[in-house]
Computed example of a mutant assay.
Amino acid sequence: MKPKAIIFDMDGVILNSEPIYYEVQMKFFRELGINISADEYSTFVGLSQTEMWKRILKKFDSTSIRQLTDGVEYNFSTLNKINLLEELITKNNKLNYQHFSKLENLKPTPNLIDFINELKNKNIKLAVASSTTKKLVDLILEKLQIRHFFEVIVSGNEIKNGKPEPDIFLKTAELLKVKPEECIVIEDSFNGVKAAKSAGMKCIGFQKFNSGEQDLSDADLIVNEFNELISFI
């Protein structure tokens, strides 16, 4: 693999953040009276808030959910779902941002900085393509003190179709001014790997226990640590 660009997913790759999201999401689900199992939640890994909540609203189409403001219940089948979707996304994004804002001493994934320095020495362009909102991506990268390494950052709220569609990776390649086939994506989720391969890019599956039981079998290579890649690329 001799790429011109490496595109990193953020959550689960740059930062072991999936357990943090899991805690916030499960608390929010309970407050709404929604029963989501750990196995089902693992299918949401890599999705944008929009894609995740679309799936949840579809599943609970004939049931009720506690209203976000005054505690009463309303029915999915009669409520304006567009307004509900927007309300859920806004509230969820706010909860995520508030939670991460309070966290201190966040550390990047082990050996990430060494790997990035090796890529920089080889003049390989670096980017982040994350389903997370731009505001939260910027916050996390600044807390990790690694924002300056990346030429391009594309977030989930900047593209029309989120992962597993290829839009976010195609936009990232366009901004980097490289062809999709000249890129390698590093992803930890089934949805992310599918998006990368649909974009016509090589993909490295980053196998992490905290990302749940993710099927990364379509990736071109699967690793557990960044030090496995330092001599490979």
Results as ranks from 00 to 15, higher is better:
residue 32 L to Y: 07
residue 33 G to E: 03
residue 33 G to T: 05
residue 34 I to L: 15
residue 34 I to R: 00
residue 35 N to E: 15
residue 35 N to D: 15
residue 35 N to S: 14
residue 37 S to T: 15
residue 38 A to E: 14
residue 40 E to T: 08
residue 41 Y to G: 01
residue 42 S to P: 05
residue 42 S to E: 14
residue 44 F to A: 03
residue 44 F to G: 00
residue 44 F to I: 03
residue 45 V to Q: 03
residue 46 G to K: 02
residue 46 G to L: 06
residue 46 G to D: 06
residue 47 L to C: 05
residue 49 Q to I: 03
residue 53 W to I: 11
residue 53 W to G: 01
residue 53 W to H: 06
residue 54 K to A: 02
residue 54 K to R: 12
residue 55 R to F: 06
residue 58 K to V: 05
residue 58 K to G: 06
residue 59 K to M: 00
residue 60 F to Y: 14
residue 60 F to V: 07
residue 61 D to E: 10
residue 62 S to W: 08
residue 63 T to I: 12
residue 64 S to V: 14
residue 65 I to C: 06
residue 65 I to L: 14
residue 67 Q to M: 12
residue 67 Q to W: 13
residue 67 Q to C: 15
residue 67 Q to H: 13
residue 70 D to G: 06
residue 70 D to F: 11
residue 71 G to P: 03
residue 72 V to I: 10
residue 74 Y to W: 10
residue 75 N to V: 11
residue 75 N to L: 12
residue 76 F to R: 08
residue 77 S to L: 11
residue 79 L to D: 07
residue 80 N to H: 02
residue 80 N to F: 00
residue 81 K to A: 03
residue 82 I to N: 08
residue 83 N to V: 10
residue 84 L to H: 08
residue 84 L to A: 12
residue 84 L to K: 09
residue 86 E to M: 08
residue 87 E to D: 14
residue 88 L to N: 02
residue 88 L to R: 02
residue 89 I to N: 03
residue 89 I to Q: 04
residue 89 I to L: 05
residue 92 N to S: 13
residue 92 N to K: 15
residue 93 N to T: 12
residue 93 N to W: 08
residue 94 K to M: 08
residue 95 L to C: 13
residue 95 L to R: 15
residue 95 L to E: 14
residue 96 N to T: 11
residue 96 N to R: 10
residue 97 Y to H: 15
residue 97 Y to I: 12
residue 97 Y to V: 09
residue 99 H to Q: 13
residue 99 H to E: 14
residue 100 F to N: 10
residue 100 F to E: 07
residue 101 S to R: 13
residue 102 K to E: 15
residue 104 E to C: 09
residue 104 E to M: 11
residue 105 N to I: 06
residue 105 N to K: 13
residue 106 L to T: 06
residue 107 K to I: 13
residue 107 K to H: 07
residue 108 P to Y: 04
residue 108 P to V: 05
residue 109 T to P: 01
residue 111 N to E: 12
residue 112 L to Y: 04
residue 113 I to G: 01
residue 113 I to Q: 01
residue 116 I to W: 06
residue 116 I to G: 06
residue 116 I to V: 14
residue 117 N to T: 11
residue 119 L to P: 06
residue 119 L to T: 02
residue 120 K to I: 15
residue 120 K to R: 12
residue 121 N to M: 10
residue 121 N to H: 09
residue 122 K to I: 08
residue 122 K to G: 02
residue 123 N to L: 09
residue 124 I to E: 07
residue 129 A to W: 05
residue 130 S to C: 00
residue 131 S to E: 00
residue 131 S to D: 00
residue 133 T to E: 09
residue 133 T to Q: 11
residue 134 K to A: 14
residue 134 K to D: 07
residue 135 K to E: 11
residue 136 L to E: 09
residue 137 V to C: 04
residue 137 V to M: 01
residue 138 D to F: 06
residue 138 D to I: 12
residue 139 L to N: 04
residue 140 I to Y: 08
residue 141 L to S: 00
residue 143 K to I: 13
residue 143 K to V: 00
residue 144 L to I: 04
residue 144 L to V: 04
residue 146 I to S: 04
residue 147 R to G: 05
residue 147 R to T: 10
residue 148 H to E: 13
residue 148 H to D: 15
residue 148 H to S: 14
residue 149 F to I: 05
residue 150 F to Y: 02
residue 153 I to P: 00
residue 153 I to Y: 00
residue 154 V to Y: 01
residue 155 S to C: 03
residue 156 G to W: 03
residue 156 G to R: 02
residue 156 G to L: 02
residue 158 E to S: 00
residue 158 E to Q: 11
residue 159 I to S: 03
residue 160 K to R: 10
residue 161 N to K: 08
residue 162 G to T: 05
residue 162 G to R: 03
residue 163 K to P: 07
